[in-house]
């Protein structure tokens, strides 16, 4: 009984009920119900104080079936109701065509559609590009496949969002993801991405702005929330993802977080406060001559990759020296236009 008290005697610092977890952000110990309330309230505050949405907007939630997007869909649907945001919410999923991975996770999204009462749209690589990831990997092997997948996914989400005629796209990127991306962009010297990867809203100049309501939400809390609420999510690593470089950064962040949980928010703050030297040239945004998508090059990255695939030269567009399109190339080569080589997985590509 002595032990029983020792194990269960911790009390919620808000209501004196039995504490269920320690929040990494504040080190507060909270019971389940107080945690739910605090978790949802904080996200509501982030939404309100950053003016993420306007009444009447159509908003697509990028839904992979994983923990973050599942919790995001659940919480947004709940907040939209309780705080009467007046939003029209949709689930938007991308089917990359990865047998044994995405087909299973899409089943989760189909269940979420019913559970949360949100309409679902699925766009597939096969329909958009004529290739599934399985077919791409069969052609190019497992070396650079994450480059293709990342570039294609980003565009696929935008195209899906356009089909749904939404005003905004929200993604489930959490504080740990963003800290990891800050670190990766520093490691890569990717100044353009470093300066925008901490923005809660991006692409406001483009057709469909994206935002990240979980920017300040710890991964631990998202998983605890999903666990305590018994939310239905899918958690299997992509069968093609080696994820080595990002994996190291991730592990490093997690190690820091164990020693000092605030480290995650501090890294995000460091990212936010970087001043980009005015002499650093930033890539100019234009549109792809081939498909009209935003691009700083003559052709967008997806078109370059697709062209390579279709011509049987899948190495085109991978790495630094492309040599296909020539024009307008070197200005970007000089100022850090080495955009995606060595990106292991595009899921978190802001």
């Amino acid at each position: 009984m002595e032990q029983e008290r020792e194990r269960n005697g911790r009390l919620c610092c808000l209501c004196s009920g039995r504490a269920a977890l320690r929040r990494p952000k504040t080190l507060q110990q909270l019971c389940r119900e107080c945690f739910f309330r605090v978790f949802e309230d904080e996200i509501h505050q982030v939404i309100v104080s950053n003016g993420l949405f306007t009444r009447g907007e159509r908003v697509a939630i990028g839904a992979s079936g994983g923990k973050d997007s599942t919790v995001l869909a659940y919480v947004l649907a709940k907040l939209n109701q309780t705080h009467d945001y007046g939003l029209h919410l949709f689930l938007l999923s991308v089917d990359e065509g990865i047998t044994g991975y995405r087909d299973d996770s899409l089943e989760t999204v189909h269940r979420n559609q019913i559970q949360y009462g949100l309409p679902l749209k699925v766009v597939s690589y096969k329909d958009l590009y004529g290739w599934t990831m399985d077919e791409i990997v069969a052609t190019i092997g497992k070396k650079n496949n994450c480059t293709f997948c990342g570039v294609f996914r980003r565009q696929a989400l935008d195209r899906g969002a356009a089909l749904l005629k939404v005003d905004k796209l929200v993604t489930g990127h959490n504080a740990d993801d963003i800290a990891e991306t800050v670190l990766l962009n520093i490691l890569r010297g990717d100044i353009a991405r470093l300066s925008r990867c901490t923005s809660i809203t991006t692409g406001e100049d483009g057709p469909i702005p994206r935002c990240k309501p979980f920017k300040y939400t710890y991964e631990k809390e998202i998983v605890m929330y999903a666990y305590f609420k018994r939310l239905d999510y899918f958690s299997t690593e992509c069968i093609y993802s080696p994820n080595a470089y990002r994996g190291f950064a991730r592990e490093f962040i997690k190690d820091l977080e164990r020693l000092r949980p605030r480290a995650v928010l501090d890294i995000i703050r460091s990212g936010e406060n970087f001043r980009i030297s005015t002499t650093a040239k930033m890539p100019e945004q234009g549109t792809c001559e081939r498909c009209g998508y935003i691009s700083s090059q003559k052709w967008c990255k997806a078109c370059v990759l697709l062209d390579g695939l279709n011509r049987g030269l899948p190495k085109l567009g991978i790495g630094r020296s492309h040599g296909v399109i020539g024009a307008s190339r070197d200005r970007n080569e000089r100022n850090g236009g080495k955009t995606i080589e060595s990106k292991q997985c595009g899921t978190l590509d802001f």
Partner: peptide, 14 residues
């Protein structure tokens, strides 16, 4: 790090 542990539905950090 990154693996959560709960004993009787209580965070083991507590």
């Amino acid at each position: 790090p990154g693996v959560l542990v709960l004993v009787n539905d209580c965070d083991w950090e507590l």
